[in-house]
Design a binder for these strands. Sequence first.
RNA 1: CGGGGCGUAGCGCAGCCCGGUUAGCGCGCCUGCUUCGGGAGCAGGAGGUCGGAGGUUCAAAUCCUCUCGCCCCGACCA
Length: 477
Amino acid sequence: MAEKLTKQSVDYPRWYQEVVLQAGLADYAPVKGCMIIKPYGYTLWENMQRELDRMFKETGHVNAYFPLLIPESFMKKEAEHVEGFSPELAVVTHAGGKQLEEPYVIRPTSETIIWDTYRKWIQSYRDLPLLINQWANVMRWEMRTRLFLRTTEFLWQEGHTAHATAEEAQDETLRMLEIYRRFAEDYMAVPVITGLKSEREKFAGAVSTYSIEALMGDRKALQAGTSHNLGQNFAKAFDVTFLNAEGEREHVWATSWGVSTRLIGAIVMAHGDDDGLILPPRLAPIQMVVVPIYRSDEEQETTVSAARALVEQLIRAGVRVHLDDRDQLRPGWKYAEWELKGVPIRVELGPRDVANASARLAFRVDREKRDVPLAELPALAQELLDETHRKLFDRALKFREENTFRVDSWEEFQERLDEPGGFLYAHWDGTSETEEAIQNATRATIRCIPLDDDLEDGVCVYSGKPSRRRVIFAKAY
RNA sequence: CGGGGCGUAGCGCAGCCCGGUUAGCGCGCCUGCUUCGGGAGCAGGAGGUCGGAGGUUCAAAUCCUCUCGCCCCGACCA
């Protein structure tokens, strides 16, 4: 804990790794590529789950749970799905001391087992729509892993819905994309761009994939959530049909959508600085930490009891507050530690403050210090947290805008991408060949075709062929 | 899979090239005193089969062979 962090400007990946470990979000596991999510990190995840779960339920979804193990044959039923996921499957071949007749794969995502099940659940248009979400762990044997951003096993939610029409499925796809956008911006304080994925980048088995894309502190992009319109691909692969009102048999239309513990990585990299994490107040495990300050035993008695009283009032005001009354640590040490852990607001309570009936607040987001009357603090707390949220969001948005460029020539594209990086709005001829060529030349990929962008005639920055709109290129995680 | 690095106390490391007393250092931990408004000081103390196996040698953390694991950088991916 006492080690100093590597500065972001010196080595960003190293900073990331150190801050995740030192702030107590996660630890390495004995298994390659896996991590142990520690209580502080898991509480953050629980807070994210709670809000997302509420949003899903408000839009008519219910939770269910499907098995971890999937018969291997299921994975082979949808052609693109097989191709996309085969290389990263973990397979169980032995159990109960015997070799299994059919191996089981550990789910990398649950479309197949869910659509196998939906076949039994759906007969009529009256059974639709079917709006189910599950909170689960999944496993993908990636070649290279990074804490939270890409681990072999990760936690996520996956929604799987079934609809009677293509229009309904498309509406659902966009509805959930919008929920992800709202969650990212209103809770994580991370501004995101919503858009459509290119053919190359879309989900294996989808008709179309939409995503929210965020810009990290090192000016690289992070895909923070995806929503897929699966069309009738899985319904056909698993023979899921229904009778419509006219008595005709049709294949069901599907969507799936998910966000994962990767979002924790997004929070770390969107907001963190050289002193550590900066957690968005609406998700922070600890929103305010109260540090009593004293020299003598009498002062300790005075400030600690004042702190206890304050903490009680703050809890009643709905604040997630922590009292740091550890006697063996000095205040300066505690300040540094809570800053590393990204607590939005620190409340310092010393003899002078108690005498003045005030509290000294220190804001993590901008280091501002402010004295507030003790009696007013509980009533003021939510507003202060909201203010912090806005500052965080505004700063992240400003950063993104400062690192977003419209580029019109291949030279400019390469230069900007190299230094400083960021989002590049550029014309693209719409072909996978060009996309691949650009990736090979620069390591940049098309993050998305933004939804809220106007059409504009131009020529492809790489091939010079005609283009109808700009797309966003960036180096990505 | 290619490239690089690392396994020595809870954590971070030195020692290894050039073998040789009881294997060190910092942080943390325990005890005591003084401290406490930006990462405290002093004194005392506990804590190790040096990743594993085999070999060379009078003697191996150190040399040789094999092996296991993890991390970082790239290619693949949420």
